[in-house]
Design a protein around this nucleic acid. Structure first.
Lengths: 233, 233
DNA sequence: GTTCCTGTTTGCGCTGGCGCAAAGAAGGAA
DNA sequence: TTCCTTCTTTGCGCCAGCGCAAACAGGAAC
């Protein structure tokens, strides 16, 4: 794989970086490729590296002692992940990063980023903006989980996932494709595979989505938004 | 109220600040006092100020369209809150801050912090450490809400609240007092007042806690930890 | 084509926890 | 002291959603 510094500018944190800085980070990077289902890192591992996804898709998940797991976030190309370790030296990853498809990522030592932060205000702001975004998303999702019913939560989740990892279908701009299994959606919305399956089946009957194997196709985003907003109970 | 710069050093973000910086921030601060139940700011307001609680207690909460609300975090003396707005100029508060008791806070313009961040790496690190802490706590709580049963969630919540706002009882170091109503605990653990009341009554029968009006006294923290860890089903 | 694997659907029964309503208790005010 | 407000408890009924089990189906490999 050929990477040039300008590619790095697609990473939100590096948007305002100088060419020299990009070159510097790239020179520190190792390319890691993992197969579908494999892990970039596990919850609890020392956070030695942070990553930038170059190709493929991955998810960040957390699991409890009983093995029950929840999806925290889906990672797309040119997104940074595992960067919390750069803030506190000696930290461990608070979540697991697993590839949803064969994926490649740049791995750079957290300590390197930590040093760089000391002299580059733009990096600080970029990273903080990322963090505030996560905080707000997690707060919202927490509230949804605590206060909304499943159907609405699933609608909110599918819409969120669509905006994060959805691909608009060539030919029809309104249709969005999601490469996610029922289980994935269940873990992202805090419910079970069975319930997701039933809800999607009902939506399919109403013509809102098309539900395939490890795939959800949104036919009518507006209808989903109505459910998400509780206008269509 | 008399405040001197050294007091500000009790704020985690200012731990490594110079005396001049503390003086500078203090000179920018306005003192705001609010009564119990009143608000420092509301969800959706422009985030013009960030706050440092000087005395009293407050909570950060979010509510949905139907008015159903969840507690995101409890704020203690010398904690900073409402600071997300300093990162993105023009942002709004993503949550509401409400006083649990008569409280006083320093209010400083977000824009001032924003400027200060550009030239003071220690502030950046401090703020980022705070943020990573929130992210991790929210991720944990989200997972708990998605995967754990109520009793366990309530135990985890009570323990978390104890570590954040609990007061050790003079005389018996093991006993911790929480000045929170059933409703508060319900909103912090994602359940209803009724369920919290029933669970606390059962714990009281077992001698784990003493439940009073707007008050929970933990008699046996270790027993609660067992429930929280699922060892005592 | 056939086989196998893995993900999905659906019927069914069950129960955890919600939420109303009404009574009870703890403070504060007067 | 009594009254009033606010918080808490508890009985009761109910149902959303869970979770098992078994059948079903899409896709890859051969």
């Amino acid at each position: 794989m050929h990477l040039n510094p300008a590619d790095l500018r697609r990473v939100s944190v590096f948007r305002e970086a100088t060419d020299e800085d990009l070159q510097l980070f790239l020179s520190q990077a190792i390319l890691r490729t993992v197969e579908e289902g494999e892990f970039f890192f596990l919850q609890g591992d020392p956070a030695v590296f942070f990553y930038i996804l170059v190709s493929g898709r991955a998810k960040l998940l957390q699991s409890n002692a009983a093995g029950h797991q929840v999806n925290l976030r889906t990672i797309n190309e040119w997104q940074m992940f595992g960067a919390l370790g750069a803030v506190k030296p000696g930290a461990v990853y608070p979540a697991t990063a697993q590839a949803l498809e064969p994926s490649t990522a740049l791995a750079i030592e957290s300590a390197f980023l930590h040093e760089a932060l000391k002299t580059r205000p733009y990096l600080n702001f970029g990273l903080m903006q990322l963090m505030t975004g996560y905080i707000q998303e997690m707060q919202e999702r927490y509230r949804e989980l605590a206060t909304e019913r499943v159907e609405r939560r699933i609608a909110l989740t599918v819409l969120r996932l669509a905006s994060q990892v959805g691909k608009r279908l060539a030919g029809d701009e309104m249709m969005i494709e999601l490469p996610l299994s029922r289980q994935d959606v269940a873990e992202a919305s805090g419910t079970t595979m069975f319930t997701v399956s039933r809800v999607l089946a009902e939506w399919e009957r109403r013509g809102l989505v098309e539900a395939g194997r490890e795939r959800v196709l949104i036919r009518n985003p507006h209808g989903l938004v109505q459910i998400a907003e509780g206008l269509n109970p």
